[in-house]
Amino acid sequence: MFDISDKEFELLSEYIRKNFGIHLKKEKKGLLIGRLQNILIKNNIPNFSKYYEYLLSDKTGEAASVLANRITTNHTYFMREAAHMDYMKDHVLPYLKSTVEERDIRIWSAGCSTGEEPYTLAMVIDEFFGSDKLFWDTKILATDISDEVLNKAKKGIYGIEELKELPLGWKLNYFEPVGRDRFEIKPFLKDEVIFRKFNLMEERFFFKKPFHVIFCKNVMIYFEEQTAKKLVDKFFHWLEPGGYLFVGLSESLKRASSSLKYMEPGVYRKE
C-alpha cells in the first residue's frame, strides 16, 4: 500500500482541480491512493512525488489522460432522474418543436460518462418525434473527459442488469442482443449521438452554434463552487434564449450569480 504525504496530496489535488475541475478534499486521500496506486505499480513508480514529476514531464498527454480516467467518478445509468426525462418530453421538446428553426435541435450532454444519459435522451427524442424524426436533425453531442468511458459509450454495449430501468418497448426498439446477457444499442440510435472528448475546464468553448438544451448532471457536484459558477456562466453563454440547462436533482445553482430562471428541481431556463 502506497502512502501519500500532505504535500504530495496537495500537489496532486491541485493539479486535478486545475485540469479537471474535480475538487478533492483532505478526506479523499484514501480515494486518491486507491485510484492511483495501480498506475504507480504498473509504471514502477516508487512514490507519489515521482508520479507527480512523471505527470508533469509527460508531454504526450497520456499520463494526464490516464489520471482523468482514474480520478473521475463515472456513475450513471439509464433513465437516471426520470423526472427530467419527463420534463423534456412534456415541456422542452414541444417547445423546441414549435419554435426551433431549420429543424435543427442542439442538445449537449456534458459529462456523459458511459453514454446512458445521451442514449436515454435519444430514446426520449425518438419516441417524441415518432415518424417526424426523419425531418429533424436532433443529433446529441455527448462529451466527457475520460476516454475510457467514451470508448464504452461508443461501443454501446450494456449488461442486462443495466437495462432494467428501461421500458420493455424501448429495450426492444433500441437494443439488440449480443452474446449472453449483453445488449447493444442499435446503429440508428448510435448515430443520434456524437461522442467526443471534451474537457469542461477548457478556458473557452468553441462551438458553431449555441445549444437549445444542456445536460450537465452530477458533474459539478465534484467541483468547487467557484469552478461550478464559472462553468454555469459558460453554459448560460452557450444557451439559446429560452434554452434549458439541466443539472442533477440534488444540485442547485446559486442563482444570484447567473441569470437563469429556476423552473423546477434541477431545471433552469435562459430567459
Binding site: 486545475k18 475541475g21 473527459i145 456524437i194 471534451f198 474537457n199
Partner: peptide, 21 residues
Amino acid sequence: DEENVSTSLVAVPSDKEFGKY
C-alpha cells in the same frame, strides 16, 4: 482556501471536431 483557478492549458486536451456542433 479558494484560489483562483487558472486554467491556462488543461492537461487533457479536448477533441477538435464536433460534427454539427
